[in-house]
Nucleic acid binder design. Structure first.
Length: 433
DNA sequence: TCTGGGGTCCTAGGACCC
DNA sequence: TCTGGGGTCCTAGGACCC
């Protein structure tokens, strides 16, 4: 990447809500929210809902009344739908720009290495139009010298109607003005904790931060802070990562529909989570040798208990039955008789590509046989639906299952199944919400 | 009554070694 | 008053992002 090139960030507006509206245009006439697992929190808001003051990840019960008063459509999340739109948009970007210059940063964002600073606004508007025509998803584009500045531009493009969704700050005399209008907590990389510390030092805007010496913020914000200051000054510290992204960990964690005391119930849930995480791992052609299990009680009640335990094997594996054994050992370490558990999870780490995993000194033949077995099970489940075949230890009808009262049109719109059938699902490394 | 899930990276400090 | 010191590795926890 040339160091004087321009960087773009393309970001889908209200992504989950926009996907729901794309499949169901009637929703364009109403405020819309999409809910988290268990219908607990609001995780995507239409502009009207943002204007009501509803915050990201705000608990539904706190705003339910207000949403109803405004005739808001309240929808349980449908992640396979969102994943399909994300892939379609990624494909459009790569077709248009080439895969060497597109970094898929998250489910609804991509960084672009645009090289020459000429005609940036035209390019941004072209991409915006292209994506809307093909998918009906509105996007915003920010352009600047660095990722952090591009984020600032994007932020303003999203809010200000004047920009029509595209703002270029590359070499612009308005950059400092834009930074002055940006509260320090809105800067990419400055979270709520750091914002408090920086404000205490009299730094209130992105411009204040830009004018600080990088060393000054190191103490409060680690080396990230120094990099952010440099990036605000137009010095690239965070290169585009266009090479294939390899996941470093894969997790499946859930809040239970109701508290669970019994060891058997907890175990069912943990094995179910393990199964889901392993499926995802195998789609990515990875193996793990470090499995962690955690259990938590209700974090909003007194005597909150949370414990994690990790088992590390000397061998990598993707064989369900073997990894069930590892998980079992972890479970014995974290479970406490008499406690009411509200949340649990399984995290796979120390991942390695299956193709480069070292062979075992002993039992290699048996491992390969079992490896083939789980791959066949994955294929059957892919073709005929989830959990058509599964290990006896897996039980899918536990009391721990969460609630999704606000599902709409599930049959028609859960097109994720087709995506799996084509072997596409999870193949791409999208860091997913 | 009701409060998400999946990631990454950095650092302090303990354990261990010589 | 005194208690060696320096390096490395690992992990738990914090902070952040979407």
């Amino acid at each position: 990447m040339k160091n004087d090139g321009a960087i773009g960030i393309l970001d889908c507006n209200n992504f989950f809500v926009s996907c729901e509206r794309a499949v169901n245009p009637a929703l364009n006439e109403r405020p819309v929210v999409v809910l988290s697992h268990n219908d607990g929190c609001v995780i995507s808001r239409s502009d009207e809902v943002k204007a009501m003051g509803v915050k990201m990840a705000q608990p539904l019960f706190q705003v339910r009344k207000m949403l109803d008063q405004h005739n808001t459509a309240i929808i349980s999340s449908n992640h396979s739908l969102y994943r399909q739109y994300a892939e379609q948009i990624h494909d459009l970007l790569i077709e248009d720009l080439g895969n060497k210059v597109v970094e898929l940063y998250s489910i609804d964002e991509a960084f672009l290495d645009l090289g020459s600073p000429d005609k940036l606004v035209m390019l941004g508007k072209h991409l915006k139009r292209l994506i809307f025509e093909k998918t009906k998803i509105p996007v915003s584009v920010g352009l600047a010298e660095t990722k952090t500045l591009a984020k600032v531009a994007n932020h303003i493009a999203k809010k200000s109607a004047k920009t029509q969704g595209v703002l270029n700050l590359y070499g612009s005399k308005f950059t400092d003005l834009a930074l002055q209008q940006t509260p320090i907590g809105d800067v990419w990389g400055v979270g709520p904790r750091s914002a408090i510390k920086l404000k205490a030092k009299g730094l209130n805007t992105a411009l204040d931060l830009k004018k600080t010496k990088p060393e000054k913020v190191r103490g409060d914000m680690t080396i990230f802070g120094s990099r952010t200051v440099l990036e605000l000054n137009g010095i690239k510290c965070l290169p585009l990562e266009v090479s294939e992204h390899l996941a470093k960990s894969i997790a499946h964690t859930r809040t239970f529909g109701r508290p669970i005391r019994s060891f058997e119930e907890v175990k069912k849930a943990i094995f179910f989570f393990t199964t889901r995480a392993l499926e995802k791992m195998r789609w990515n052609e990875l193996q793990t040798r470090n499995v962690a299990v955690f259990l938590q009680t209700d974090r909003f009640r007194p005597n909150f208990y949370a414990k994690a335990f990790a088992y590390r094997s000397i061998y990598h594996s993707d064989v369900t039955s073997e990894i069930y054994d590892w998980v079992d050992r972890c479970l014995a370490e974290v479970f406490v008789e008499g406690m009411e558990f509200k949340k649990a999870g399984v995290i796979l780490s120390e991942l390695q590509r299956s193709s480069v995993v070292a062979p075992r000194l002993f039992g290699e033949h048996d491992f390969n046989r079992r490896h083939e077995l789980v791959r066949s099970m994955d294929e059957l489940n892919m073709r005929y639906g989830r959990d058509v075949v599964y290990f006896a230890a897996l039980n899918t009808d536990g009391k721990w299952q969460g609630q999704s009262e606000h599902r709409i049109n599930d049959e028609n719109h859960d097109i994720g199944r087709d995506a799996i059938g084509k072997g596409k699902m999870f193949k791409r490394s999208i860091r997913f919400m």
